[in-house]
Design a protein around this nucleic acid. Structure first.
Length: 551
DNA sequence: CGGCGCGGCGCG
DNA sequence: AAAGCGCGCCGCGCCG
């Protein structure tokens, strides 16, 4: 008899690992020496859905031993989703506080860095008894709900596998190319730490300001120096500076660009984060309340486009870079079942369609209008254009407007698959209640309205950003399985990077076209999984090359 | 010295 | 241009 579930945990009395095989009830339990565990898993990697407390605690060792599994349930991640969802009563899960643990960012445990990433690193129970107990609690909850939460927990768990596998594989990174870019932008390294072009540019700024000693790295000092030179800005941010006309501005903006590159992704970053030609960031699935991933260390999700050229395939391999055009509007059209919006988006640039249909005048306006709709702009160019979308796509706008209203009223909203936003804080509720008092001051009233609108913008965006994250998880989950079936057994194409609506796949050259097709097929499958037969598509921009610079 | 808030800026 | 959402990381400056 083949068990559906294989629950993995530590033997409380020894160094052994226990696997409890389950269907409707426990079938048997197997005790394994640690050293035998990877081989045992490898022999039945696709036979079970592997259940464990935390993918970051169990999977890296398997990967190091060359073992990949097909499916899992990550109890830590699923606990958080089921505990908070508004669609099923999960009282038993809410009581299990020892599972309320945020991501263990050092889970890989072999992070080759100089510094520990300073995020709390709690751990969920490892022991088999408590692991089985939590598995049973989640199973009972999932049995009482519809397919959506089962889809979501499966997708979230698949994301955990992808994250561990991508960290294991790393993003191929060409140090020489990165250094070439640094030298071209910043000049040569000097003993003092500041590269030559930065030193020269700083001197030009000081010259133009008539202040030979001013610090350019201290915001208050720089602001005072600008004022003394007659540049009356309120901040030193680049967009405010860019509006000024003064000889110091051009070199100052150049200095700020260089300073940013040096501190965020300079030589120090290279030493710390790139080893053996691989950048290995820590990905944190479910790290954002909306369900998006976060990252810790290395700034994986903020790599500047400037450095794209340093992402370089191994010899004989290629990189397949793919991103979805206008993911969030498409997801909104799908979740609202807004046929007009889906039609405008079909197979092409949604923003161009809005211009053609004379909903707005220019593509740029279309973009601002859509951002305003998703983020809740009320003022400026963007806020002015939103009503046009409301007239053109009442169903889609109805979904985000309703989410905003619910949030303003202190209610909960959820994504398509049931991930639910956090409740309003006690402080938020207190401020709202104070505003209903008979003797409320105008200030209190204003504060309450402002906080209510803030929360409305959050819940408005939550439903779309969160459902887009679900689409992306479904895409990743399907793609990792398709890729594993391509290429030769010892060198299949693999995911190397993921950023909200974009993937980079590292593939043997002969498998690159097939990988590109797999990426497209997975996008189609994700659309079907979330939106069924509703005719919304998710066209991709796909580029195959030796680097990750998009065509 | 470490912790923390802030301004600033990179990404979607 | 930002605006309006979600992040992480840097350096500075202040505080204990």
């Amino acid at each position: 008899m083949t068990a559906t579930w294989a629950v993995v945990g530590a033997d409380p009395d020894s160094d052994a690992i226990v696997v409890a095989l389950w269907d409707d009830a426990e079938i048997e339990s197997v005790r394994l020496a640690r050293a035998d565990f990877p081989g045992w898993v490898a022999a039945r990697a696709a036979a079970h859905r592997w259940v464990w407390g935390d993918t970051t605690a169990w999977y890296p060792d398997l990967l190091a031993a060359g073992v990949r599994i097909e499916r899992c349930q990550d109890l830590r991640l699923c606990h958080a989703i089921l505990r908070d969802t508004m669609f099923v009563d999960a009282t038993a899960l809410r009581a299990a506080h020892h599972w309320d643990i945020a991501a263990d960012v050092d889970g890989g445990a072999r992070v080759p860095t100089l510094f520990d990433v300073d995020v709390p690193t709690g751990t969920v129970p490892r022991e088999i008894g408590e692991t089985v107990a939590e598995f049973v609690r989640q199973r009972d909850v999932l049995e009482r709900t519809d397919a959506r939460l089962r889809l979501l927990t499966a997708a979230e768990s698949a994301g955990a596998l992808v994250a561990a596998e991508m960290r294991h594989a790393g993003l191929p990174w060409n140090v020489a190319e990165h250094e070439r870019i640094l030298t071209a932008e910043l000049g040569t390294r000097t003993a003092g730490g500041m590269p030559s072009k930065m030193i020269e540019t700083a001197a030009r700024v000081r010259q133009a300001l008539g202040d030979p000693a001013v610090s350019l790295d201290s915001q208050p000092k720089l602001l005072r120096a600008l004022h003394r030179a007659g540049v009356l800005v309120e901040s030193t941010s680049k967009w405010e500076l860019a509006r000024q006309t003064h000889p110091a501005i051009e070199p100052l903006l150049a200095y700020k660009r260089m300073s940013r590159l040096l501190s965020a992704n300079g030589w120090t970053w290279l030493d710390e984060w790139v080893h053996d030609g691989r950048f290995r960031p820590v990905y944190i699935p479910g790290g954002v309340v909306t369900g998006r991933w976060a990252s810790a260390g290395g700034g994986a999700l903020q790599l500047p486009r400037q450095l794209r050229a340093a992402v370089r395939a191994d010899p004989g391999w290629q990189l397949v870079t793919a991103d979805v055009a206008q993911l969030e509007p498409r997801v909104l059209a799908g979740m609202a079942r807004d046929t007009a919006m889906a039609t405008a988006a079909r197979g092409r640039d949604l923003y161009a369609s809005l211009v053609e249909q004379k909903i707005v005048e220019t593509r740029q306006e279309a973009k601002y209008a859509m951002l305003g709709a998703l983020y809740g702009s009320t003022s400026g160019e963007s806020g002015r254009l939103v009503p046009r979308l409301r007239r053109a796509f009442p169903r889609a706008m109805g979904v985000v407007d309703a989410a905003a209203k619910t949030g303003e009223d202190g209610g909960l909203v959820a994504t398509l698959l049931g991930r639910t936003c956090p409740p309003a804080s006690a402080e938020w509720t207190r401020v709202q209640r104070a505003a209903t008092d008979a003797d409320v001051s105008p200030g209190e009233e204003r504060l309450a309205r402002s906080r209510a609108r803030e929360r409305g913008r959050f819940t408005r965006n939550f439903v779309v950003q969160g459902t887009a994250a679900e689409w992306a998880l479904a895409w990743l989950a399907d793609l990792r399985l398709r890729l594993a079936r391509l290429g030769s057994d010892d060198a299949p194409p693999h995911l190397a990077f993921f950023l909200h609506d974009e993937v980079i796949v590292h593939a043997p050259a002969e498998a690159a076209e097939a990988a590109a097709q797999a990426i497209r097929d997975s996008a189609d499958a994700a659309g079907k999984l979330l939106f069924g037969d509703f005719p919304i598509d998710f066209p991709l921009d796909v580029t195959i090359g030796t680097d990750a610079v998009k065509a």
